[in-house]
Design a protein around this nucleic acid. Structure first.
Lengths: 207, 207, 207, 207
DNA sequence: AATGAATGAGTGTTCATTCAT
DNA sequence: CATGAATGAACACTCATTCAT
């Protein structure tokens, strides 16, 4: 980020990790300062307050999230391939931003703090637009059916991923994914494939 | 619950609400005692500690979750109808236990507290068994396709619901659900239908 | 004690043990009620308050302390034998009332509580009188020297015993008293003998 | 102490006084902060916890206790004079460290806290060695008798002093020491003399 | 006569934040 | 510019005690 020095970025990274692990309220400034090996006063000094640190963190990361899902539409691909690619990139993106999503997840749920989520909403809207364009193109080509509730498709993608990930211990056990590598591989292959299959089925099958 | 008097149940209800709204760490015993209009010492008196209150709350509610999804299998319904009913009941169940699920969600995610989630896991396993039986029956009847990852189906159901619900403000806006009633109705009708449609599309054995 | 029922006596015994082990402030009514397996309210109910329990305990036990050291004087013994017997009985008495003495010790030291120690003072005075009579008899017989500060003799007896006992772990180690039995035997034999020897040496009228 | 600032030393002093007066459990951090006119959080801030404050206090003071009783042996004095000096210095030392000894006394007696008393034990051992050397020299010169239990001599010295001091109100009354000065003078003169006389008698008289 | 339920005051400790340097 | 020192408020929890039954 432009207006951040190294120490600020360090704090943001450590805060991101700890907030994701233990929650905002469960993480103290002391925890952050200890892990980042910086002075306790630094957080208030640089960010004003713990809450403002969170806001900056969200801003800091949301910029990252504006990845180009919108470009897919213009690529030389079939509608099916575009859907596949959209999901693959989407999953990949949130998977590599797990921490931030975990944090956002909670902040959105909790009515406690009034975090400005405008930029995050903008990202979601952008993604919805991209997806809508792809689907409508497929519908125009008569490869996708017409009566589908498009805004409810992203929840299927994201929700499936998050639910799987939230219950990591459970799925790791019943699917025998006894290492982080296997687990990550499973997400990249099986889970992504499953979601792709699900969305594509929804888009073509009349039932 | 059998071994709980009225005041204990009151505390559990208030705690459930506040934990769901503000998180466990974000809720103080003072908050609970104030909202429940009871003495601060009561929580420790009845439950031993804040953490044990959470444990009791989970236990208290998890018992509620063991509703009979397993009975659906034996009803006189087509495989598709069984899937519809399974999803409808499932969504309905988690929707009326939103608070508890919200809390569990966080407790599962956070590595902080070592809550005993055995009973919750048992519920999930039971539901998976029920679903598997329905699907395998449909596969045996050749109405469902074989190539489907059954354990990944519940994440689609639950995940979609939760993702929708977590982003309530977002969806309320883009779907124009400007009252809680409309929002709840949307879940009961559109969202449930969408999920049913999604799962059935995924399962259908198209020629 | 006349006006104490069994439960009250049980409480007094348990309180004595715990007060001696952990101090008055370090012992909670809960500790007592738990160890005595009685209701928490019982202590306040029977004794009025924790502090009054302590008072009653002191009264209860001080009566026990009024053992007959005064009879020694009238026995058919030499002055040395009387001293020996006085010390032996004295040590034996405080040794079997360790707990109470430990408690009294602290209560006397601390300015915190205004415990009525009149009866305890009376006991000490009685003992001092008895000792004085024995010593003065020896002095009259010219076997004890005149130049001795009699009131400072009991501190030597009691102090030595208590200092030894307070530093039990230390002495147990350097004297190789690796069991409670050995330790108790050492007090009964060596320590008592040592104190007797000390006092008699002090009293002896060497030419 | 080297690594203590003024405020820390202030806290240590106030804590020492209050712990000695009212016991560790009987003294609250609020009591200390009030008396020292510092913020309540300071104790935890500087020492980590109330218990660690006690530990630091013991360490802080025990260093003081390592006074040179060992030098006496090498001085140009008779064995008798060495004993006299040893006792005088010893009494003087513990008398000026009353508070700390009072505290230690209790901590040693109570099984509650696991305070590291290693350094205190070391001091005791050092003193015992010094005393042993003096006595053995006297024995070698045939001025002291042989059959004396040397490890039991320090309990006579310390015990007599402590017993006298613990029962200050009692002795103040029967010895008519109606001011702190008179009382202190009595310890310095009479009591010390009495203890010296006692030990010397023990070391020379066969009985 | 005895007790379970309940409570207000107090416990030690941690919190995010401020401020002098 | 950066930080160690310091703090008031809040934290979860335990205390001795009371009271209705």
């Amino acid at each position: 980020m432009s207006d951040c020095n190294d120490k600020q970025i360090l704090i943001l990274h450590v805060a991101e990790k700890l907030f994701a692990e233990k929650g905002f309220d469960g993480t103290s400034i002391r925890d952050i300062s200890k892990e980042a090996k910086i002075n306790i006063a630094m957080v208030s000094y640089y960010f004003g307050s713990k809450e403002k640190l969170l806001e900056r963190l969200i801003l800091f990361r949301t910029n990252d999230l504006k990845v180009q899902l919108e470009n897919i539409f213009n690529e030389q691909l079939t509608s099916f391939e575009k859907i596949d690619k959209f999901i693959e990139l989407y999953i990949d993106k949130i998977d590599s931003n797990r921490h931030m999503y975990q944090i956002l997840h909670f902040e959105i749920s909790y009515k406690k703090r009034a975090i400005d989520l405008a930029s995050f909403t903008a990202v979601k809207n952008g993604n919805l637009v991209s997806l809508t364009k792809i689907i409508e193109e497929g519908q125009a080509q008569n490869v996708f059916k017409k009566d589908v509730n498009i805004p409810l498709i992203t929840p299927v993608i994201l929700g499936t991923y998050f639910n799987f990930h939230t219950n990591k211990p459970y799925f790791a056990e019943i699917l025998n994914l006894n290492s982080d590598e296997k687990y990550d591989q499973y997400i990249k292959n099986e889970l992504t494939k499953h979601i792709q299959q699900t969305i594509k089925s929804l888009l073509i099958n009349e039932k």
